[in-house]
């Protein structure tokens, strides 16, 4: 992460409050032990690891949080949630950030752009869950 000024003003506080409201979690419970990132099956794909991502939320950095790919790589497998020593539902934090993003831009996946053959061959369980997570 690059160094720079971090402002925590009313916008930042509003973002933190929104994440906490949607997820029902206290983001400040996290003490950055990194167990979530260590156990995550997808850490190698994330530009911010899970604990770095939570740190950004703690600091209210909405733009940087939404710019990260972490919440889109997360597949809600709940490994982090069941292992968190602070009993944070980490997957719910990911969902909250996805929700905030989708409520502004509802199409992370554009169904019309998916090739017809993949829509035909893929099982409906994959399509339904993908659209539930990636469209608003």
């Amino acid at each position: 992460m690059s160094y720079g000024y971090i402002k925590i003003g009313s916008e930042e506080k509003a973002f933190i409050a929104k994440v906490e409201e949607i997820s029902g979690q206290n983001v400040y419970s996290c003490y950055q032990c990194g167990k979530c990132s260590a156990g995550c099956a997808f850490s190698y794909k994330m530009d911010k690891t899970v604990n770095q991502f939570i740190h950004l939320i703690q600091l209210g950095q909405k733009e940087r949080t939404l710019d990260a790919n972490t919440h889109w790589i997360c597949a809600s497998c709940f490994t982090c949630t069941v292992r968190c020593p602070r009993e944070i539902d980490v997957a719910a934090l990911m969902e909250a950030v996805r929700e905030i993003s989708l409520r502004e831009n509802p199409e992370k996946v554009r169904i019309a752009d998916l090739p017809k053959e993949s829509l035909e061959k893929l099982p409906n369980i994959a399509l339904v869950s993908n659209f539930r997570k990636k469209t608003g």
Partner: peptide, 11 residues
């Protein structure tokens, strides 16, 4: 229990 990637298969 290493996640298979689940619904990411779509996109």
């Amino acid at each position: 229990k290493h996640c298979c990637g689940s619904y990411h298969i779509v996109d």
